[in-house]
Simulated assay, not measured.
Amino acid sequence: MTDAKEELATKVDIADWLSLRAHLERGGVIVVDPLLELVEVGAALAADEVQAVQRWLSSSLLTKPSLEQVKKWDAEKGKIFNCLIVSPYVLIQEPVNP
């Protein structure tokens, strides 16, 4: 598992909402709550860890973007996210400001 996490950690990137929005149309965008580590979630999805993923979904720590979020992000020019592709999903997380 550690090797998978290390590999995924090298794939975390930064993208603006406009670039990510295309993935929204096909239902592939998953919003990761800042309480979770993006790489940990990606590794759990890649390893098909159903219990962990279901726990996060039921706790609303993993969600599809809401209509309100999409409208807000559409209005924010240059809105940036940390992102990680774990096909067929694109995990996105708002950067935490220090």
Score class of each variant (00 low, 15 high):
P34S: 09
K64C: 02
R55S: 15
A9N: 06
D13V: 06
L45G: 01
T10F: 05
D74S: 12
C83G: 01
V50W: 00
P65F: 11
E25C: 04
D33M: 09
S60I: 05
L61A: 14
K72P: 00
L20I: 13
V29P: 04
V29G: 11
P65Q: 08
G78Y: 13
A4Q: 05
A15I: 04
L18Y: 14
L20K: 02
E7V: 12
Y89K: 11
L57R: 15
P98D: 05
A22N: 03
I14C: 07
V70M: 06
K77T: 15
V31Y: 10
E49F: 09
E37L: 01
E6W: 02
L91G: 04
L35W: 01
E7R: 10
N97Q: 12
K77I: 11
A46V: 00
V31L: 14
W17I: 10
D48C: 06
M1K: 02
L20C: 12
I80R: 13
E40L: 11
L57G: 08
E40G: 02
A75Y: 04
S66M: 05
V70R: 11
F81Y: 10
K64G: 01
L91M: 03
K71H: 12
D48Y: 15
I92R: 08
G28M: 13
G78D: 06
F81H: 14
F81Q: 08
Q54W: 02
V96C: 04
L67W: 03
P34F: 05
V41S: 10
G27C: 06
D3R: 11
K11N: 10
V29Y: 06
P98R: 11
D33P: 03
L35H: 07
E94R: 13
W73M: 11
I14G: 00
Q93E: 12
Q54C: 09
D3T: 05
V50C: 05
V53S: 04
D16V: 07
N82C: 01
L57E: 09
V90C: 15
S66N: 05
V70L: 08
